[in-house]
Amino acid sequence: MKITDLKKKLDKFSLDIKSLEIPEGKIYGIIGPNGCGKTTAMKLMAGVMKPDSGKIDYCGLTPRDITMVLRKPYLLHDTVERNLIYPLKLRKIKPDITLIDHYLEITGLTDYRNKYALTLSGGEQQKLALARALIFSPKLILIDEAFSNMDIESVAFFEDYILKTQTEDPLTKTPSEPKTFIIISHQLSNIKRMCEYTFFMHNGEIITSGETDKLLSSPDNDKLKQYLNYM
């Protein structure tokens, strides 16, 4: 993905990304204080929001190859299972029962498959939304603080799961085309564990970026240093 001169003015701030290149097949992190534009940037990348100006070149990816898991996920007024298979239904793919069972199992929702999804707890809703985003194997997956309501054990499980299935088919365990993940999180542990490369945003701009370990252990920017001091 290549972003050039992307601008979006909102009530409280303006997003301005001059130039950004995100090579495919890796896991990226976006960090920054509240209101710095992380979610707006992600929504623009996902096509949920339209920019005022600028360009996003998806390098051959279509909207059907991209998904985003929102912080407050939208769940259909329907059962857990029907929520899970919704993206497959949109693509007229008959869902394989093994696939459904697999995702119900990893989310711990096997016993709730016929339950109304909106009765789930916040953490369970996030797990369902995450599984729904992964079930159709999109090439670009944008995750906006989707672990925020999960317990520590579940977060660790999904971190492992994403790391494993990024390059491997979850059912056959055979190598697959590497997927690209972009993750927003306020938990630096998520970013450190999962992301190869991280962007730091402040006041609507990406002010520094680099390999995650290096960026977080020896920050080259005062704003980033200040941000990390509070974490």
Binding site: P63, V69, L70, L90, R91, A133
Partner: peptide, 20 residues
Amino acid sequence: SFAVTMGATKWQTQVLLIKE
């Protein structure tokens, strides 16, 4: 927004809206 994140077409979005 949800429909966009799922890759729904315009028609599928309208159907989803009416259903929801």
